[in-house]
Amino acid sequence: MNKWTDEQWQQWLETEGVAQEAAPTPGGASTTPGEQEDLKAYRFVFDQLNQEPPSGFSYCFSKKVMQQLRSRKRSGRWLGWYFLVVVILTVGLGLTYGMLGLLNKVAASRFVEWVNASKGLIILALLTFLIVQYLDQRLIRRY
């Protein structure tokens, strides 16, 4: 019957390391053939688990991260600008209506009719602009 349990082998290899020259057996103790097999297998397992993967990230990984960071900051700023464009457009339409209302009520109501008739077109143009800008930023972020 084996004297050494799996738990003991693992604990011993965790503290002693896997280098064979370090200590062939715990405290130089004699081991049975079954124990020798266990130890050999555990040494191999520990050795392989401690092996670093063959390849890491690309050589300029940190540069790529910095590039990503800068492009995300830029896209965050652009998002603010897009929002501002929408606000300016809305306020602009409101102001135009207000001014026209003061100067010429007929022109003001015509303006409202025009906006009403073309609202679909205005919204479509605005959405297209925002979607194109959004996709553009997504592509920049990806590549």
Binding site: D6, Q10, E37, D38, K40, A41, F44, V45, L49
Partner: peptide, 22 residues
């Protein structure tokens, strides 16, 4: 988890080590 994973790996490869792969 650590104990069970290492024990399983040991058991899976033990058969091959008997054939003096190492």
């Amino acid at each position: 988890c650590l104990f069970r994973a290492r024990k399983l790996l040991k058991e899976k490869i033990q058969g091959y080590l008997k054939n003096d792969v190492l």
